[in-house]
Design a protein around this nucleic acid. Structure first.
Lengths: 201, 201, 201, 201
DNA sequence: AATGAATGAGCATTCATTCAT
DNA sequence: AATGAATGAATGCTCATTCAT
């Protein structure tokens, strides 16, 4: 019974997060009413406040939850990659772009809301996002140690630049839902761009 | 007299735009009250509505105005560059990053608000932003025609990726106001990353 | 419980309508603030919008509600009248004038706001008001069929004229709150005026 | 020159009054912006305040001006009437209804705004309107003295009732602009109604 | 006298949050 | 835990009026 309850609770919490994701993706944080999230989640308005402190907290929790999921997936996929650093970079890019098709709402949410949140939900240092960057950063650093990646670039800077590039392209992918983008080709091109840019010569 | 009046009007419009830029950069569009913009600009609340249809229009007009300025500056600086395509790409990056120190408010505004606006002010196709991308795109295309840039990447995709990278790094520069950043070094590194990535081999 | 809730809701709705009636009667639609209605009704400002779409809708709903009540009362009183058509006309007039003393606010509201509403809330065809007119009209038509009312007048025209006369006198009664008015005498005189005017000879 | 100026001034004042009449008739007092009146009159917004103290004063002045004109016309037409009191009553009614076709804006304005003004522009006792009523009242009193009108009705009450009847029918005429109302027939019927009602027997 | 840009008080409406049930 | 009716602070926008030119 205790588990049942927890399961139920957790189920409700998840439904609220999903509702919020859908709504935020569609209309953005500021244009989404709490009541819309509630109705999307199939719960009463007040119920949301049993699981989240307020609307801001809901946004933050959503980041935590989804970024955690993304990072976990990234880590596990990277672990599977056999081959050199550049293969891994390729995989990161592929995974990033795949979001646009696999998880359109999530892609839209991250690309659009990430910046707002970083800036306006002051007390919140988006740690998950930092984690994501660190994965790239460490990969680059590793490549540098191995000598396959040039030494004259700052790995943090590179991770930022790469994330920015990926995110912007993802945004484009997401917004222009219509066009039959060839995700594979895009992945190949962007990966190649960075790989060539990063190679030691 | 007519000119004086027009000058004064235009002056008031400019002051409102500046007030809006400052306020939006500081608190974001949704957290900025019209009355704050007014007081920042030193005009009455109602005066804003003599120059702009509503708060949304003010945001859009601000984009138009500032992006136009940025593009103009980019064009004129690019025209001055002597040397090959890669020198020009270097200059674009330099100019982009210089925003963080020269025009902190503008940098903050563009990096944070650009995405929101692209998405929620649906009827507004941010033409100026597209213009900016096109400049990069054309540069890449030109390089491809000349044979110095690899042929196997889509110039539009590259322009997106590059803009994303620049913007994300700029955001970082802007948020971590810690002066410590060596803009020149960053410019050099990012430029080199892309140049190497783009070179024909 | 469901009934209790509905009763309470309906109670709140009624209180808002009463508050609106009082306020509109006192200061007119345009000079009444929504917050005044709320405070008169003992609810929060926002609560009004749970029951009415907006201020206009509140006005219209108030008409619907009160005119319905007036008409119901008129119908039931007419049903009680024993005697000829003229007795019934007498009763209509009496009832109309009695509003001034029995329901001063309602009288003031109807006499003053009816015209405004008819004209400016264009999409609203004040059906209740038409219903009221029709009652008079049918009475006249009935009298004509019976041969006791002259045939050479249009019953719709007469109903309009009679309503106008009653309403104007009621307005006077209402505005000059000086109690001195002898409602019975007025009723007698106006009734006699119309009865004599309408009689077949 | 002085006359020219005065003429010009007076011309501007008239144009403002005409603009106000048109605008008020179309949209009512509260929904008409001062700037709309100004543009209708072909003057600047501020100019209106050279001729009228404020928007209320403009409304009052418009009443004064137009009612004065109506009364003057009524008096002169009544003076022309040859025949008994009842002929004169007939003429009053005819004149009243003729407004609907001759001066649609004025008719609309009077029927709709009269009541508002009576109630909400507190300091203003609409003397012109009272004058109008008095004309009817005196006519009735005269008829009573002559013995042709029944003695048992209060002439003030009758004047109110008659005005109300006329005004309501006029309102109907005005609002339903479409229907090819037969004004003459209506005049005849309403006049006959009151004449028969008022006759001594 | 005339203008119309500027003002700023005023107000309808929204919506995150609470709390009695 | 869950509900959803109720709250009331918050704010974008309007428009009568002013006043420098």
């Amino acid at each position: 019974m205790a588990e049942a309850k927890r399961a139920q609770s957790s189920d409700k919490r998840q439904r609220i997060l999903e509702g919020a994701l859908k709504a935020f993706a569609r209309k953005g944080f500021y244009n989404t009413k709490v009541s819309e999230i509630a109705s999307e989640a199939g719960v009463a308005d007040g119920t949301i406040y049993l699981y989240f402190k307020n609307k801001d907290d809901l946004l933050i929790s959503l980041f935590e939850d989804r970024m955690e999921w993304v990072i976990e997936r990234l880590r596990s996929e990277l672990a599977e990659v056999e081959g050199d650093i550049f293969k891994k970079i390729h995989r990161i890019i592929e995974l990033h772009f795949r979001l646009a098709t696999d998880q359109a709402d999530l892609a839209e949410f991250i690309t659009v809301e990430l910046r707002q949140s970083a800036k306006f939900v002051k007390e919140y240092k988006n740690q998950r996002f930092v984690d994501y960057l660190v994965i790239i950063e460490e990969l680059v650093a590793e490549g540098q140690k191995e000598g396959v990646i040039r030494d004259d670039v700052d790995s943090r800077l590179v991770s930022r630049a790469m994330f920015g590039a990926l995110d912007e392209v993802l945004l484009q992918l997401t917004l222009s839902k219509a066009a039959g983008m060839d995700v594979e080709r895009m992945t190949a091109q962007v990966a190649d761009l960075f790989v060539e840019g990063l190679k030691s010569r």
